[in-house]
Design a protein around this nucleic acid. Structure first.
Lengths: 229, 229
DNA sequence: ACCTGAACACCGTTCAAGT
DNA sequence: ACCTGAACACCGTTCAAGT
């Protein structure tokens, strides 16, 4: 480790090394403790040296987003739109899971980065190549980016110690419906240690539900019928 | 305004006034410029005075989330699950739109606040009362909280000056599919000034697609079939 | 010309000294 | 007992002084 730092000090700094170090630091210690000063220290460099390679912290975050998005697998040139889209989305999910801070940072950016635009562009292409109209593709893209509730995500992921499934008694009394769900979810899981929901399953459940909907609308020749809006 | 501050100074501080002022400040100046010190100043109070009412900034943010969630309309005791859910989700969307920082703050919280839990609990209740199994309800809740792509949201919302629709020429060349979509979206809009997408329409499009899917699964008596996973 | 230490204008929070 | 100023350990970034 100290050896690594030594080696790092010899290599001249460049934008790429700065970004990779920032991503690694955010992965290890959380995005909220990523500071220009700590990052510089990690690189064995004076804080001001970073400003040679990124204009400011905002641009550093933009660059970090691009590093993450670059980690998404390229589109597999499959035949059917559905399989291609599905595989790409699942790959993007993997990339975002590797960097838990990423989705929040992406959301905080005011303008999308080039890598994000390229990703969206290629995703649009998959639907268009599958015969989707511009109109339907447009709404489909919005649907995939929207979240109907601002929460839920990791609700039952009690990431505490060796997880026994039972929720605290107080909680069960105050929120009986949640307790019922959490209890059931914990029950029908064989290896109910640690986390009680299979997040991958939940994600694919939502994904397939939407893809089903897209497919149906596409086959019906759906239009948003501009006149009526 | 100065008058308001004067009046505020007379009234003794309490948790509720602190939270409301914090929400207003975040609404006005953005969440990233909300600091304990600025908030104290806004309230005509020394920074340390705030710590009588919130343990720290994290707890302040929790409290702010609860204020926002409290602004969601109570469930309308309608007959059908679909209408009730739909209306509640749309009301929640309105609450989150009134406070643009809210969804990001909610996402950053490590444990959900009581108000969020109560909201989720009541939402679960709507599906259960509509005859949904615990199993299906569980997955439905996850589906409503998930986002398939980490972005898209306000992509084409060029919040620049009096919006002419044409995207920058460079962008069109680099991301032709995006340009195509953006152009089409701008075209079929009568009042194409300012924003080119009707966000409310997009949201309801995604919402109805998912509700359709839920309805279908429910009617089919869908189960997650634990044995096969 | 490049690099960098000190400085500026901020943070959240602790703590001891004042009333 | 309550309140609060000063202080501590941080920030991001500017800028002038050093090489």
């Amino acid at each position: 480790m100290a050896q690594q730092v030594e080696a790092a000090r010899r290599v001249p700094l460049n934008r790429d090394r700065v970004l990779r170090a920032a991503v690694a630091l955010a992965d290890d210690t959380g995005i909220e403790s990523l500071s220009m000063r700590r990052l510089a220290q990690e690189l064995g460099v004076v804080p001001m040296a970073l400003y040679k390679h990124v204009a400011n912290k905002e641009q550093l975050l933009d660059g970090m987003v691009d590093v993450v998005v670059a980690g998404i697998d390229p589109p597999a040139g499959g035949s059917d739109w559905r399989g291609t889209v599905r595989q790409r989305i699942l790959s993007a999910r993997q990339a975002l899971l590797r960097h838990r801070w990423a989705s929040r940072v992406i959301e905080s950016r005011s303008v999308p980065t080039p890598a994000v635009l390229a990703y969206l562009d290629s995703m649009i292409g998959m639907f268009r190549d599958g015969g989707f109209s511009v109109d339907l593709t447009h709404h489909v893209m919005h649907a995939m980016g929207s979240r109907l509730m601002g929460f839920t995500q990791e609700l039952f992921d009690d990431s505490g110690a060796a997880g026994q499934a039972a929720p605290p008694a107080g909680l069960a009394a105050a929120y009986p419906r949640i307790a019922e769900l959490a209890g059931a979810a914990a029950h029908d899981r064989e290896s109910a240690v640690g986390r009680s929901c299979d997040d991958q399953f939940e994600f694919e459940f939502a994904l397939d539900l939407l893809l089903d909907g897209f497919d149906r609308l596409h086959r019906q020749g759906w239009t948003s019928a501009p006149g009526t809006r």
